[in-house]
Design a binder for these strands. Structure first.
Length: 264
DNA sequence: CTTCTGACA
DNA sequence: TGTCAGAA
């Protein structure tokens, strides 16, 4: 009987616009959406005008604008003043899309690598073919050292999403080890040549086991009569521990000069 | 039964 | 942002 033109209650408005009643009251508190009037029992009532207004607020909010800015948009600002805000919103959502794409790629990579773990029996030696592998230097340290907290702190920030990446340890002859990541952006610090490589994948729980496996790798190479030259490459894939708690995943590679003489 | 306000995590 | 209590 008190409905003059078919106004609706806050919960009806909420359902209509797919938001919570709490949110509608919040907008009111922030001074961007007043009810058409408030009725006898203090109920807020809303009409078409408020519905359109709320629709606008929701659009602006989707663009990532703060309630503060929305307030200005809907009151003071001219079309010319609002336009740059939309350009900014466009740039922001493009950035967000890129972020989500990266996220997607990493998840896909995880699943591919997981499948490879299941495929290859632990501890097998294989021969693999590569295209040239460009690597970007992260930092260098002594071969006897390991990647510890201090090293991480010293060289933090240079590599975004470090723990989603394959960390390449390149042990050269001079007793130093270079820490590299795969950076495809054209510029690289080290180019591992295309060709055949002896490969050994392994899982360890601590550094002693890792060192043991490295010795074993050398021994195996020598015993089989492989002619290996160049640095030893060790690839750490820390994210694979997601599948096997307490186990660290590494791959050892060494360039193979005489692949034709090799018998499996 | 619905909404309001205020408080809290 | 969701939830909850107490009141209207």
């Amino acid at each position: 009987m008190n409905r003059m033109q078919g106004e609706i209650t806050i919960s009806e408005l909420a359902k209509l616009m797919q938001v919570s009643t709490h949110q509608i009251r919040y907008f009111e508190e922030k001074g961007i959406l007043d009810p058409a009037y408030t009725g006898e029992n203090q109920y807020r009532m809303y009409g078409m005008h408020e519905i359109y207004r709320l629709a606008h607020i929701l659009l602006l909010r989707k663009m990532g604008l703060s309630v503060q800015v929305i307030q200005e948009c809907l009151s003071h600002l001219t079309a010319e003043q609002i336009t740059p805000l939309f350009h900014q919103a466009l740039a922001n959502t493009e950035a967000e899309i890129r972020r989500l794409q990266e996220n997607k790629h990493f998840i896909e990579k995880l699943l591919v690598e997981k499948a490879q773990i299941s495929d290859i029996e632990e501890g097998t030696f294989t021969i693999v073919q590569w295209e040239a592998l460009p690597l970007k230097l992260w930092f260098e340290m002594q071969a006897a050292e390991s990647l510890n907290v201090q090293k991480l702190m010293q060289h933090q920030g240079k590599i975004p999403n470090l723990f989603e990446k394959d960390i390449h340890y390149v042990y050269n002859d001079s007793g130093r080890v270079g820490m590299y990541t795969q950076e495809g952006q054209g510029s690289y610090d080290l180019l591992l040549p295309a060709g055949s490589y002896v490969k050994r994948t392994l899982m360890v729980q601590n550094e002693e086991q890792l060192n043991a496996h490295i010795q074993e790798f050398y021994a195996h190479v020598e015993q089989r009569g492989y002619m290996c030259s160049g640095p030893l490459l060790m690839v750490e894939k820390s994210y694979l521990s997601l599948f096997t708690p307490d186990q660290l995943h590494y791959e050892l590679f060494s360039y193979l000069a005489n692949p034709e003489e090799v018998h499996v």
